[in-house]
Design a protein around this nucleic acid. Structure first.
Length: 506
DNA sequence: TTAGGGTTAG
């Protein structure tokens, strides 16, 4: 049992808690997002038992409101502060500014700020954070930053966060370079700025140059690799982390599991799964969802199901992971069953869920159902089909031999021609020996992916099936002339036979 | 009392 949960349990068994006990419990609960609501309940209990909150109660209580975006509760507490004879204690007022900022009530933050007889750097930082947090108002943030009487490292870091979230890496970097002293958060935030924008190699340069690294820095770098399709490097770094003085937690493992899923090796998946068990990693919903995805991608549907059943209230992520796993392993009917269960439980599907649903239809040959789901996706759920949805739909129509309809769909794609959809159609052209459509599709594909050997081979075999040998030969010659007969590069992870480790090879 | 890390897709 985690410490805050334990606190809560002990606390509720006490018959007459005093002010100090209430304060300790509220503080402990406010540190865990899922338990913030309990700390507000304790506060209400305090009021009922006529125990007056003091200056140590309010900051943590207001933190809970901020974490929950509970504006009304926050306003009520603010009101009670006044009623109880308001003595301007700066940490409490600062917590109010911060709470209003996090509840998206910037005008109220300013009301509190303007009324303060005396402010400290934290007051300014809280206001600065309110402007900068989502990167939406960097002009406002810059104004606060410029008029601050004094700045500390948190002020500078808040500006970096803002510019990173605004996608303005140049400004973020210029703040980073200008600041008088940097701490681990400054480095890590800048690193995250690069990883979130796909500039992974620069992020790595920063990571290697950092004076020290903590759990967040390691996790951010591993996540950067995992989210940018570089699972080998993510795992290599995870391996290196074993020698570092920090231990991976649930957040780290979520990315590590995701990287392992991308590689799809059974032994690796087993090893990562047992690592999570052995090290007692918290099995929260994100970890479990990543595990479902990983085991499903390795074809271990039994394990994926077992983990899915471990989730008390599965959400759109966990449902989608399971549906996509089932669909891509040929269990189309089962995928659709799960989808219906999801609808019955009123979980709103998203665009990724529908990729799985349409994949299930295409693998199971359910043309009518596929069309029905497509329509429902657009009409009932207002999801704009993206390239992947078109690719699935083209696949469904193509496999059923409806090549003209599939071709029409491809031409109607608002995002323009796309390799996935075109590739599906070309494959269907071979199945049904349609040279005419194949030629027009292949032409577009050669332009989009001149390096992809498969497309040339496919067109060549379509000609061959129609006994048009000259043309078949011509395609192969064209391929050789364009020097695309190169084998694609590959890399893999090798798991040691004792299951205790793995190596990344390139 | 103020700043940084996560899940699902041909």
């Amino acid at each position: 049992m985690s410490f805050p949960r334990y606190t809560h349990l002990v606390f509720t068994s006490l018959s007459h808690p005093n002010l100090s006990l209430f304060n300790h419990a509220i503080r402990a609960l406010s540190k865990t997002p899922s338990l913030c609501i309990q700390s507000i309940h304790l506060y209400l209990q305090m009021i009922r038992t006529r125990i007056k909150p003091d200056n140590f109660t309010y900051p943590f209580l207001l933190n809970s409101c901020a974490a929950l975006s509970a504006l009304h509760q926050g306003i009520e507490i603010h009101g009670r502060l006044f009623k109880n004879g308001y003595c301007p204690y700066i940490p409490v007022t600062n917590a109010l500014i911060d709470m209003y900022g996090k509840c998206n009530a910037l005008d109220r933050s300013y009301c509190v700020f303007d009324e303060m007889p005396e402010r400290d750097v934290v007051s300014y930082n809280a206001l600065l954070g309110a402007h900068a947090r989502f990167g939406e108002d960097m002009n406002g943030a810059q104004r606060v930053f410029d008029r601050m009487p004094a700045r500390n490292v948190i002020s500078w870091n808040a500006m970096i966060v803002g510019y990173v979230n605004a996608g303005d890496l140049d400004s973020a970097r210029s703040i980073f370079d200008k600041m008088p002293e940097r701490n681990i958060v400054s480095w890590t935030t800048m690193l995250i700025g690069y990883t979130k924008n796909g500039i992974i190699d620069l992020a790595r340069v920063l990571f290697d140059a950092m004076p020290d690294r903590n759990l967040v820095s390691w996790t951010a770098m591993i996540t950067g690799y995992a989210q940018n399709g570089r699972p080998n490097e993510a795992l290599a770094l995870f391996r290196r982390m074993e020698k570092a003085p920090v231990k991976p937690d649930a957040v780290t493992m979520t990315s590590v599991i995701s990287a392992s899923a991308q590689l799809g090796g059974i032994e690796l998946a087993e090893w990562i799964g047992s690592y999570v068990d052995r090290e007692g990693i918290e099995r929260n919903e994100r970890v479990l969802t990543a595990l479902i995805d990983m085991h499903a991608k390795c074809g271990n549907m039994e394990k994926a199901f077992r983990i899915f059943n471990e989730i008390p209230r599965p959400d759109v992520f966990s449902y989608s992971a399971l549906i996509n796993g089932l669909a891509s392993h040929g269990h189309g009917m089962q995928a659709l069953e799960i989808f219906h269960r999801m609808q019955k439980e009123n979980i709103e599907p998203d665009y990724i869920t529908f990729v799985g649903v349409l994949t299930a239809c295409s693998h199971t040959g359910l043309v009518e159902d596929g069309l029905r789901f497509w329509e429902s996706m657009v009409k009932d759920y207002r999801i704009d089909p993206d390239a992947d949805h078109y690719a699935c739909m083209v696949d469904i129509l193509g496999r059923a031999g409806k090549l003209d309809e599939a071709h029409k769909l491809v031409k109607s794609m608002p995002m323009g021609p796309h390799p996935g959809a075109l590739g599906s159609l070309l494959a269907a052209c071979r199945t049904y020996g349609n040279v005419e459509i194949a030629e027009s599709v292949a032409e577009q594909l050669f332009e989009l992916e001149p390096e992809n050997t498969g497309n040339y081979m496919l067109l060549s075999s379509i000609y061959a099936l129609g006994e048009r040998w000259d043309e078949a030969a011509r395609v192969r010659t064209a391929m050789k002339e364009r020097r695309v007969n190169k084998l694609p590069g590959c890399s893999w992870v090798e798991v040691n036979s004792n299951g205790l480790g793995f190596r990344v090879k390139n």
